[in-house]
């Protein structure tokens, strides 16, 4: 129905919130312009120009890029968070982190390099 170019733009035009709840698994390149909440599983890549919330039950194997993020679940992959990253006490991150502002709660696990400041 639609050409390939229009398809590739589809989720980038989505300004509304996306929720991936428990009981659902996502595989592939997930892009959005809206807020994303993940409580389920995701493998691939994850990119949003808005906020990303990763719940306690979430398991993500992906390169992650977002404007700001609060993480309570498991992420295996590099994180690039433009404005601010909050790692809650239940979070487990295995990968490098690039962000401008970082907050790490007691109990959070981080295995990887942390770079503060915006990426060149």
């Amino acid at each position: 129905m639609f050409g390939k170019q229009e398809n590739s733009m589809a989720h980038q035009h989505a300004g509304s919130e996306t929720i991936i709840a428990q009981g659902v698994k996502v595989e592939g390149d997930f892009k959005s312009n809206g807020d994303i909440t993940i409580d389920g599983e995701l493998n691939g890549s994850l990119q949003t120009s808005a906020a990303l919330h990763v719940g306690e039950s979430a398991v993500i194997h992906a390169e992650v890029s977002a404007k700001q993020s609060v993480i309570a679940g498991v992420i295996v992959g590099n994180l690039q968070i433009e404005d601010g990253l909050q790692l809650l006490s239940t979070s487990q991150v295995t990968g490098d982190i690039v962000t401008s502002h970082l907050s790490i709660a007691e109990g959070a696990v981080v295995n990887g390099r942390i770079s503060m400041g915006k990426k060149e």
Binding site: M1, N7, A10, I19, A21, Q22, G23, G34
Partner: peptide, 25 residues
């Protein structure tokens, strides 16, 4: 909107968890 059955707690009670995704195709 995807409503999936998720079992929780020691009694494995089933609840529906709602995922929401905007789409064009």
């Amino acid at each position: 909107v995807i409503r999936a059955d998720v079992k929780r707690g020691i009694f494995q009670r089933s609840t529906k968890e709602e995922s929401i995704l905007p789409l064009q195709s």
